[in-house]
Amino acid sequence: MATPPSAATFLKALRDEGLKVVEVGDWRTHNRNHKGPFGPVHGVMIHHTVTKGTANTVKMCRDGYAGLPGPLCHGVIAKDGTVHLVGYGRANHAGMGDDDVLKAVKDQTALPADNEANTDGNRAFYGFECENLGDGKDPWPEAQLEAIEKAAAALCRLHGWDADRVIGHLEWQPGKVDPRGFTMRSMRDRINQRLGSSKPTPPPGQPATGGGTGTYTVRKGDTLFNIARAQQTTVAKLVDLNDLDDPNEISVGQKLKVPAKSTPAPAKPSPSYEPFPGASFFHGGRHSPIITALGRRLVALGFGRHYKNGPGPNWTNADKRNVEDFQRAQGWTGSNADGIPGPETWKRLRIPKV
């Protein structure tokens, strides 16, 4: 667990790593903290912008756009390697992602498949948007790749992390493909070298020791998404494992490395979740172990800031406000974010059976 440092310490860490940094306006206080917490932080997330032109890119990442207010990251990494700081605090960059991925990041172990969107990433990650069209053809200049390496290494050094704390958006949220044009495995190798670590980056989907790969021959009509689903892995893992520059360009007869199935990890028992007790269950005076389980789940997902004591079995205003934070993190407003769990809120929270 790491508490975010001051903006001044954040800036110093980047400059101490040798980066050219531009401070954009009121970046130190420009954030989304009124919508939810920032921190504890557990890692660094890399994105591409799908934009062209540094000035345009920086403006968009600072201000956001219709439906997604800025800041959209903490820093924009331009083609020339300059880092433009546009915000500090909570930023709309990561969105909801997989809690199993977050656990692997915390444990600094190989990443699992990102097949869920149930955890607030805006709270848990620093975010860097990198100026690139994201079409697999727009080049990544060495100055820009080196700046990504330095920016991530600076924050790893600040918190005592290694490169396993650095992930791409495509490894966090199902359906995302960014950054596209280089592999996160190769970037993590660069970061580890900068940090002086001899720890190799394991291929995605494999444990740090042991494991292996198999092969799959591409057939007519295949897409990388369908192959990933059939192989019980993700597009991001296949991209990294095969050093693919463009996940949309695979050809019939091409042999792809896939995570080996000969030594699968022990199967986890199917989780048992508490059935939804109904919205009327949640009212003042209600006392139940279900409420304790709800509170503990909220804390585990990063939505426990209103608890002073607890969580406990009595339904309190702190429970309600934490549920409201969770609901707002889903993008809900109005009656859909009133702090009272409804069927969809309950489904996404996945309260363990008590």
Rank of each mutant, 00 (worst) to 15 (best):
D80C: 12
H84V: 06
M96S: 02
L111K: 01
G121K: 04
T119C: 12
P112G: 11
V101E: 08
R123V: 09
Q108H: 12
A91V: 13
D98W: 07
T82G: 07
R90Y: 07
L111E: 02
Q108P: 00
V86H: 01
N118L: 13
K79H: 05
G89Y: 04
D80K: 06
L85N: 01
G89L: 09
G87E: 05
V76F: 07
G95I: 10
G95L: 09
M96R: 03
G87N: 05
N122D: 15
K79D: 11
A117K: 11
N122G: 13
N118R: 12
G121Y: 07
V101P: 00
A113F: 02
A104M: 12
D100C: 08
R90W: 03
K79L: 14
P112D: 11
H74L: 10
N122H: 03
V86F: 01
V105I: 15
H74E: 12
V105N: 02
A110L: 09
G121F: 05
N122C: 12
A78D: 14
M96Q: 08
D100Y: 02
D80E: 10
R123T: 14
N118A: 11
D80G: 11
D107M: 12
L85Y: 03
D99K: 10
Y88G: 04
D107N: 15
A94E: 04
D99H: 14
G121A: 11
D120N: 15
A94M: 12
M96G: 01
H74K: 05
L111F: 07
A117Y: 05
T82M: 06
A110H: 00
